[in-house]
Structures are given as C-alpha cells and as structure tokens.
Nucleic acid binder design. Structure first.
Lengths: 220, 220
DNA sequence: ATCAAATGTCTTGTATACAAAGACAAACAG
DNA sequence: CTGTTTGTCTTTGTATACAAGACATTTGAT
C-alpha cells in the first residue's frame, strides 16, 4: 500500500469525522508535517480526493475541504435516493440466500443500536451497504458507496435530531419486507422516501449546516 | 489552466477517440515525451483519470487505459439508464422555456445528422446533455456527464451497427413528446429503454468489444 | 537440455529543490 | 485620511534527483 493511499484514507476519515471541517484549508506543508511525509504523496492524495469531490482545489489557491450549500446537498440526496431505490429494485429480484441473511442481520443490528445515535449511525450504514451488495451490480455498489462516503459528514449531524432514529428503523422494516416478498417497485419507493430529504427534514439539514458553519469559523 | 489539467483533457480525449485503446499501457516517460512536459504533471493527470475510472493504476506496475468487460459495461449502462430516466422525470417537471427550446434544437440537429454516424454521434451526445441540463440539478448533470464520458469509447463503436441510428432518433421523438406534455413517468420509461443495453444490443456490444481486443493486440 | 537463481535494467514511488503566481501589508501620493 | 501601488512573503506548480521493487535475461548447476 502506497503512502499516498494511506494519506487518502486518513484525510478522508478526518473529513468524515469532522476533524477537518468543510471549508477548512488543507495546507500541503501542514498535512505533510502532520503525517510525517513529504509533500508529494500529500499532493497525490489531495488530487484523488478532489476527483471524488471531497476537497476542492483552486488553481494556485490551494485545497479546502469541499463546502456544500443547501442546494447542492439537496441535489445529492435526491440522486442518492434514486440510486438506493435502484439498488432496492434490483435487490428484490436478485436476492440470494447469503445476501438475504446479510440484510436481516444488518436490520437486527440497527434495532439493537436504536438507543445510541452513534451506534445507530454505524449500523445504518451497514444496513444500506447490505442492500447495495444485494443488488448484484459492482458498479452500482461502488457508486452508492462513493456517494454515501461523500455525504457522511452531513448525515452524522442529522441523526441527532429528535425521533429520527426510531423513525428510520421503522422505515427499514418496510424496506426489508418489500425486498423479502420480491416487490421491487415497493422496495424502490420505500427506499426513495427513506433517503430523500423532504419537508421538515430539509429544515433540520439546513440547521445542522449552520452548526458546521460555526465550527468552521472557530477553526479559522 | 495548469499543465496537468491540459494533459488530463488531452489524454481523456485520446482515450475517447481510440488513439489510446483500452488495455494500452500508459508509460509516464512516454506520455511526458509525447506532450513535451515533465513526469510530474503526467502523474497528476493519470491520478485524476484513475479517480474517474478512465485509467487503472496498479501499485508499482504502472497505468493502463481501463479495460471494461461485458459485465462491467452492462452494469454501467444499467446505471446510466437509471440516471437518464431520473433526468427525464425531473426534466418533464422542471422544464423552462430556455431548456425546452434547447431540447428541441438538439433533437432537430439529430434528425439532420441521421445520415452520418459520426455526426449523429455528436448530435446524440448534445441531445442527452440538453436533458441533463433540463433536470435542473447541477449534481445530477455532473454525474450523468461523467458517466457519459466514461462510456464514450464504447458507445462510438455501437452506432455503426445496422439501423441503430434511425431507431435511436425515433426513440428521441418519444422522449421529447413525453417531456413536452409533462409526463415524467413516461419520459423516464422511454429514456430507460433507450439507454439500457438489452437483448440483441448486448450481443452487438460484445461484438464491438472483441473488435477493440483485436486493436489492442495489434498495438501491443 | 532444462530449470532455477541471480543480476541487471527498466519503471514507478518518494523526496527535495526551484520558479512563478497570488495575497497581504506597508508606504507613498493625492 | 484614503486609495493605489509596489514589494515581500507564503504557497502552489513543475522539474529533477534518488531509491526501491518488479520483470526479464542470462548463466550455472543438476
């Protein structure tokens, strides 16, 4: 494994966990110092992250953690919903014994983690990933995982709001049942509604966004 | 504009047009020589291309133009179909006077280019892009454009087959009408069927793939 | 004669050095 | 006092030098 790849993962995780907040400058020297490597692999890692959209590089003005406005976030969730709906539709048709039990296990894990938002956050990701896998399309899975990764820093904040967790788990139940009875259209619709950000949830999203803004200003 | 970006575009175009065929090795020195630059920007360009999936980089074994097997291609067209269907659904709802006339103009251009496969190839891309734009989602448009780019080297060969061109143009007509009457579901379905590779078209795809294989062997 | 091991060359991965471009600040002029 | 201009400083973009791994070829031994 190359140094650049290790850096890529490290920086990506720091962005996902909020150590590197959106809008924060990513000074090459600073990162090189922090991870005890030269500038070259840092640059390569930043380029790769830029290609996936996690960071933004402006010519001769350095790199910053990508900042997503409400519009962009809404659009991304909209696409995510469609991708997941597609996964669900295919999963209902292409389910195998292995993937089926994987989904049930992930669903059970979610129910067990319902008390703690952090635990649920992790279990929820696994649940969705088990649906990606079920769809039986490597490319679709990759795309879904990439977008899931990219939205990670924003989804984190969302789950802290009110009764979101228990609601989410109930929706999972509907999804699981639709897939179980081979109802592709039903699974697609349930997943679309589950993922898309509509109505009051959009307000929550904007609210959590301004929280990020504050953190960002503190850092600067 | 940086040298690396220019190289990125140049190499991308060479891949799209078949100058650099799938499977071909991309020696850094060779490319540096060909474009009269140093190795560094070549490396950066290759990394970016790797991030978008156009080239594949194996650790200490260099870069090659990404080779897509029949499975992968089928999966990618499947996702592309879904993305375009989504574009169509949104386009039918969010159409404006500007985007509407853009679509009609692109459709007309396709009809004029029906005689020559190369002209039609270009006009067809513009037609689809005008639908992406119509959907009114920057992110969705970016995703669609990226996938369109990535499939470019494979779609080229496809249009040479038989009566594909005139068939394609008729399908465009159906799509345009569905969007015009605000029928989101109809537009989505028409686009899905238009893009997805099914039945005999899959055989055509595999056939064109083996053509590529031959070209690749000749190059090596 | 054939197979295996070792060496040499080729290519990539990493580091450092150098140049150019922007941003910020200070000083001078109106 | 304010605005503009110039100079310096910071930071990125590019090039070159160095190191390490992989592959091929050749040679020696069985």
């Amino acid at each position: 494994m190359s140094i650049a790849l290790r850096l890529h993962d490290a920086i990506e995780q720091d962005i996902a966990t909020g150590v590197l907040a959106p809008g924060m400058r990513l000074d090459e020297m600073m990162l090189a110092g922090r991870y005890q490597v030269s500038r070259t692999p840092v640059r390569e890692a930043l380029r790769q992250l830029a290609a996936t959209g996690m960071v933004e590089i402006r010519l001769r003005r350095g790199a910053v953690v990508a900042t997503l406005g409400p519009n962009q976030l809404y659009e991304m969730f909209e696409v995510m919903a469609e991708l997941e709906a597609m996964c669900g539709r295919l999963a209902a048709r292409r389910a195998t014994a292995t993937t089926r039990s994987g989904l049930l296990a992930a669903h059970e894990a979610c129910r067990k983690a319902i008390a703690d938002p952090d635990d649920y956050y992790a279990a929820n990701e696994t649940f969705h990933q088990s649906i990606y896998r079920m769809a039986g399309s490597v490319f679709l899975m990759e795309q879904s995982l990439a977008l899931q990764k990219r939205l990670r820093p924003y989804r984190r904040l969302q789950l802290r709001v009110g009764t979101r967790v228990s609601r989410s788990c109930e929706e999972h139940e509907v999804i699981v049942q639709a897939i179980a009875r081979g109802d592709g259209a039903g699974a697609a619709e349930a997943l679309r509604d589950h993922v898309v950000v509509q109505g009051e949830r959009f307000a929550d999203l904007v609210a959590s966004l301004s929280e990020l803004k504050v953190a960002e200003l503190n850092a600067a």
